[in-house]
Design a protein around this nucleic acid. Structure first.
Lengths: 111, 111
DNA sequence: TGACAAACATCAAACTATGAGGTATCAAGG
DNA sequence: CCTTGATACCTCATAGTTTGATGTTTGTCA
């Protein structure tokens, strides 16, 4: 899976979800809103993108879930597992490489 | 077309191609190699991605072509049009917004 | 009572890039 | 000579990802 283009430029949602749940337990709907708010509306991934990701991450044991009843509604709180932390570290490293690479081209004055 | 997620996270190749041909005339094969080299292998888009993009950009009058024979081989040199320059400025602005947004999340320490 | 936000979920369609395949020329090496 | 590899163009089916629509239930506010 370690290719030159690490599925970034697509897989950004996975990175953001992992990062968000690494800070504290969060539930799906909250994550959707947090991505909009914290990126200052630069990004917005729909529920149809985030929920499937959460299910995938759970299957892969990168996050763990806990059901919790709050005000009559059931929320699914996700938190990072140790495996998830490793994955997060890996993905953010790749993101840094990719965005640095793009910056190199965009900021070049040469020729 | 001005959505929250500006098709970035996908459309990076278009941005890079526009930027590269803005500096000087380049031909397709050269662009493919330049992306690998200038991003320090962080990115690598195949010919099957770049050539169709060049055809699209030409159709949209964002780049102009010139056929030139060099050492017995014909090369298609692309250069930026004024429209292409506008588009490049727009896309790099969006890229800055997107990557800044992601950085905000990744670098946040909060809670 | 009706509308809207919160909270979960699924799925077909649209969009992109991958990777394999194809052509042709040229240079270098066995 | 002949094969390999680089240069240079091209196309296409497939795979992968996200969008946007749709659906459900509960709670709040007017």
């Amino acid at each position: 899976m370690t290719k030159t283009n690490p599925s970034f430029l697509n897989g950004v949602p996975e990175l953001l979800v992992l990062k968000l749940v690494s800070r504290r337990e969060m539930y799906g709907y909250e994550i959707v809103k947090a991505i909009q708010a914290e990126t200052m509306q630069a990004l917005s991934f729909g529920e149809g993108c985030i929920y499937p990701y959460l299910h995938y991450l759970e299957r892969e044991k990168l996050v763990a879930v806990r059901r919790k009843e709050v005000e009559g509604r059931v929320r699914h709180y996700y938190r990072l597992t140790p495996r998830g932390r490793k994955r997060l570290e890996h993905l953010s490293g790749e993101w840094n490489r990719v965005s640095a690479g793009i910056a190199l081209v965009l900021e070049s004055q040469h020729a």
